[in-house]
Nucleic acid binder design. Sequence first.
DNA 1: GCGCTCGCTGTTAGCGTTCACATTCAACTC
DNA 2: GAGTTGAATGTGAACGCTAACAGCGAGCGC
Lengths: 337, 337
Amino acid sequence: MGSNKHRMPVMADVAREAGVSHQTVSRVLNDHPNVRADTRARVEAAISRLGYRRNLVARALVTRRSRTLGVVSFDTTLYGPASTIYGIQQAARAAGYFVSIVSLKTIDAEGVRDAIDYLTEQGVDGIVVVAPQHSASRALESLPADTPVVAVEGTHRADIPVVCIDQVEGARLVVRHLLELGHETVWHVSGPSDWLEAEGRMEGWRSALEEAGRQVPEPLAGDWSPRAGYEAGKILAASEGVTAVFAANDQMALGVLRALSEEGVPVPGRISVVGFDDIPESEFFSPPLTTVRQDFGAVGRHCIEVLLRRIDAGAGSDERLVVPPTLVVRSSTAPAR
Amino acid sequence: MGSNKHRMPVMADVAREAGVSHQTVSRVLNDHPNVRADTRARVEAAISRLGYRRNLVARALVTRRSRTLGVVSFDTTLYGPASTIYGIQQAARAAGYFVSIVSLKTIDAEGVRDAIDYLTEQGVDGIVVVAPQHSASRALESLPADTPVVAVEGTHRADIPVVCIDQVEGARLVVRHLLELGHETVWHVSGPSDWLEAEGRMEGWRSALEEAGRQVPEPLAGDWSPRAGYEAGKILAASEGVTAVFAANDQMALGVLRALSEEGVPVPGRISVVGFDDIPESEFFSPPLTTVRQDFGAVGRHCIEVLLRRIDAGAGSDERLVVPPTLVVRSSTAPAR
DNA sequence: GCGCTCGCTGTTAGCGTTCACATTCAACTC
DNA sequence: GAGTTGAATGTGAACGCTAACAGCGAGCGC
């Protein structure tokens, strides 16, 4: 573009061009009511003539509001975090906020602290921490409470609000579904033990079985990866009396399905399999997977809602917003025997 | 923290506390060499005593550098964009930059323009546009060149550098692999026509077949979703003489696999299937999928590299960095017959 | 006509940094 | 010992915006 050497026009330039004071330009930009219609028009004309863009950095300096929200997350490649962040980002945008993202490589408390410091220096108005691991959650416990923070799936610390999906209930839905189909009990391939979701799903599975007075088999430890599911599936295929398996996420369920198929175990003929997450692929697994759907959009919207309320109102009451999941029944589950 | 009512300390407070001028504090913070060791120590002590955090907004105002990069993307839930953004974010962080993300709901040119405007106002030092559709790509053609921009998989506009994965070559690898296995020709389930990747993969498929003097079947139009692959799979199962199928991404390949399995067509016994992307799941499909792996980390690193070079060096030569993909052979492909 | 309000506009003073330029003082050189 | 360096520090002025207040007419009641 031509104006390469020209420095960007500032408010004063627009003011001069329109024959008003810079303050009037500011008023036009901020939709202040007390500006005469023709003055407003003159200013707007000057703005577009000069190609003026306001400098939000300067504005942030004086207003002490950046209209930017920080998000701290771990491995944004995973379906869950990616979807949550997408929901947050959409909700933030709708509320007129930017989103600055820091995704961590490691999940230690120090990393989370650093990320929060980093964002605080940058002047974000609030922070959403999507770090559903114990270690990350612990990092939130000793936070300088200057910046409003909301956690996704996090901590139980009194004064940090939490938005989460009801993992326990999701797992209970799964177990109840399988028991209703006549299965004697349900095996479980769990997520990594540091993850709160893994813990919640395990807890829901265990409690639902115990409530029904069923035997609780030893869970098989996984790490969310399809490979872990595959290895668990091999073990399950070789075990006696297994008729129903609940994998803590869809990827591991896929691995289980694969292993059972290799071992010639029909699903759901001999073993029923259920996952968790409802990734877009799971409808087309062989067989299509029964799983638990989570409303990540709702999680994002609630996060922003709570965060903005904290930003304008100061530290409010501590909240804990729980989004219910739903069971999606497909073809990987069938009556026992 | 106790100091809830106290306003955050600023540089002048630290200066007073340490008995130096604010400028000396600034020098300490910016690792300026000409500060006596004991002065530095005094300042650092004062900083930690007061819990001072520097205000990057004020710094950005005066330096005209925010050390923030903008990323514009579409649907960050998809594996490709999510991975690319992750790569960008990691590389940016390593270079000491923040990343501000705008993900679009719709892919029209206007949305892209708005997002870029938005980021420009916010004072980002540079922008990465991950919008691999024609419509988005077109939006880049009429850009005020004030802010350095780099595109991922984008446009051929002369003065915007592009970093991309060689889609054409990826598709050619697939076709050559299948022809070497003795298949007469290869069917194709394409991505949505507006996407540059879909176009590139189609072009590579077509050209490789033509080069080998093979007949080019009519491609089946898909939209990246497993369902589209499923529907294409049904058609292919019912067609005469189909022995090899190249789906433009792994999710559609999954759908194809599912449809073929329902129709009792053995894979790779009667039909070989290949995907593109190498999503983490594809190794555990039934059968494990032969596909094309893309190095998204490399794409992210290159983006940041090019962008930073443009930021400090001004508009450099237009570049086009192409990252080669690799073929990952698994069990969904076998010799013909 | 006087004082009052009220709508519109201008003026001034920051916001918290860094930059450019003084200033100081010790250590040299000749 | 005067002059010259150069390292260590301080001083004032930006950066581009908004907040707070001041000013200035016009309209109105009495």
